[in-house]
Design a protein around this nucleic acid. Structure first.
Length: 294
DNA sequence: GGCCAGGGGATTA
DNA sequence: TAATCCCATGGC
């Protein structure tokens, strides 16, 4: 099997990356590696930390060629971004966040597909991560293309906008999307009508987070929370700071902030252009430490 | 601008 | 088992 190895990878932890609610199509294997699909590419990702300070380690991607790695996985895993520097900067600007950064120190923000992220976060609303994964797998199995097999399991691509645009809500009954089914279809139809290029163009550095926010909240089922997740996880708008019940909880616990308005104002002041990355450390921290107390 | 339906599985009591 | 909750939105 094709295999790509990179040594001395820093600021990287598979559990932090794949268990912080940003991606739904990866599953943890018994050996701690993760197997999943992005586009039509199926991969297993393994990380072996080295002993000693620095936290660097060896990254191994299986079922991946050097060309796949250079043209796709390197960016998908956001390996060219210096998270060490970002963490240092955040911790200097705000001492309180330091313990959250230590907790989720290996987080990286995946550069995911815009259409898949748009739909995935419409599904995520008012929903649990295990159930979101189930809904998405059912959707891909029923309306995606078979992409291949790895370790005896079949993987399916995320369905195209065109494939969903022609459906009616009852066609999605088996995916158990509930009231979200009509949002998915409405959004697919608008993507087809506007042209997928329109959605793609929102990822351009020339388009501000505010402009992209304006456009994507025009899709049915996309409000402020969902929009901020899409901007952060697929459009490179790292200043976005999605606020959900967990974020409200951690912002109250660590900073004494109660309202969404206070939280937004504080985030842009304290974290600036890296608000979204700060958000991921805080989210991971409260999920790790704050379960059960409510 | 505040309230509440709508879906259904996961989690908690 | 039953009750509650869930990375909200849309419509009133």
């Amino acid at each position: 099997m094709n295999r790509v190895i990179r040594e001395n990878v820093r600021d990287f932890d598979l559990d932090h990356i794949f268990d912080c609610g940003q991606a739904f199509r990866w599953s943890r294997q018994p050996d701690g590696s993760y197997t999943g699909i992005a586009g039509n590419r199926i991969a297993n990702i393994q990380f072996e930390p080295c002993q000693g300070p620095g936290g660097q380690g060896r990254l191994t991607l299986s079922n991946v060629t050097e060309e796949d790695f250079d043209t796709f996985w390197n960016d998908y895993l956001d390996l060219d971004r210096d998270y060490g520097r970002i963490k240092k900067e955040l911790a200097e600007r705000d001492p309180i966040i330091k313990k959250a950064i230590d907790c989720g120190r290996g987080i990286r923000l995946l550069q995911q597909d815009k259409w898949e992220t748009l739909l995935s976060f419409i599904i995520s609303q008012n929903n649990h991560i295990p159930r979101i994964k189930k809904c998405i797998e059912a959707l891909c199995r029923q309306f995606g293309q078979k992409a291949g097999q790895l370790d005896g399991l079949s993987y399916y691509t995320f369905p195209d906008p065109e494939a969903l645009a022609v459906l009616e809500p009852e066609d999605l009954a088996e995916c158990r999307l509930g009231y979200r089914a009509k949002y998915l279809i409405g959004t697919a139809r608008k993507v087809v009508a506007d042209g997928a290029d329109m959605l793609e163009s929102m990822g351009s550095p020339d388009v501000t987070a505010a402009e992209a926010f304006e456009y994507i909240t025009g899709f049915p089922g996309v409000g402020p929370k969902v929009a901020n997740c899409i901007l952060l996880f697929s459009m490179g708008k790292y200043d976005c700071f999605p606020v959900d019940v967990w974020m409200k909880k951690v912002m109250k616990q660590l900073y004494g902030l109660e309202t969404a308005k206070e939280i937004d104002a504080f985030a842009s002041r304290a974290f600036g252009q890296y608000g979204g990355i700060a958000q991921q450390y805080l989210f991971y921290y409260i999920r790790e430490t704050g379960r059960g107390e409510r």
